[in-house]
Design a protein around this nucleic acid. Structure first.
Lengths: 114, 114
DNA sequence: ACTTTATGTCGTAAACATGCGTCATAACAT
DNA sequence: ATGTTATGACGCATGTTTACGACATAAAGT
């Protein structure tokens, strides 16, 4: 993402790509689904659920947190992560806009090419 | 994506991550938007529109083509790319399902943490 | 036959992501 | 105070993506 030529695109395109990148790893998709499934904001239990080391999970959490898709609050010894549903709704809107734009005209049929 | 531990996640999670990865670069977002804006399936004109070399654009096109998000048909000397709107609609559904699941319960407020 | 034009493939350097072990820190209990 | 537990930060090895120039191919005109 912070590759050299990134700056040459619109902020809208970069924003969509940034969020897409956050979802571009099954572990991060799984983390979001797990947080959504539990009402309560679990922390290190996430690592226990995933087939990855605690260290690796922590890294994925930091990545999601950097985009503010999830939030973490220290509660004594444990950290309580939870989804930023407001932002996720905005992101959903953004993706929907993109996909509607992309599917407005039937450029190709399902089987044929053009 | 073809990293070692990928296999440990559900096919659903991997599929979503795969498509997200395809959208995880502003150039590929821009390519899809460009193809959507033109009714006619342009080919190398895409490279001319983007601030990247023809080679690099060709690579991004192959990446999108590998997931069947776009199709390319040879028309004499030029290649005619176009969106696979059917697949894009399916992908849209998939993302919508994911986001609805993620935003069903208001885990965090907009400002506070938990 | 030869040149031009449109594309893709190959090789490659640099940047970035993945995954994990080890260490540092900070809260809490004993 | 000391030990235990939950976390994040750091560093490292390995694999992947990005970006491009140089070459290969193939249609189409001259």
């Amino acid at each position: 993402m912070t590759y050299a030529k990134t700056a040459a695109f619109t902020e809208e395109q970069q924003q969509l790509a940034r969020v897409a990148k956050a979802l571009a790893h099954p572990a991060r998709v799984a983390i979001i689904q797990f947080l959504a499934s539990k009402q309560t904001c679990i922390s290190g239990d996430i690592a226990a659920e995933l087939p990855l080391s605690r260290t690796t999970v922590s890294q994925h959490l930091q990545e999601l947190k950097a985009l503010d898709l999830i939030r973490g609050e220290i509660d004594g010894l444990t950290v309580c992560y939870c989804l930023n549903t407001e932002l996720l709704k905005q992101v959903h809107q953004q993706f929907t806009g993109f996909f509607l734009e992309a599917t407005a005209n039937p450029a190709c049929g399902p089987a044929d090419a053009c």
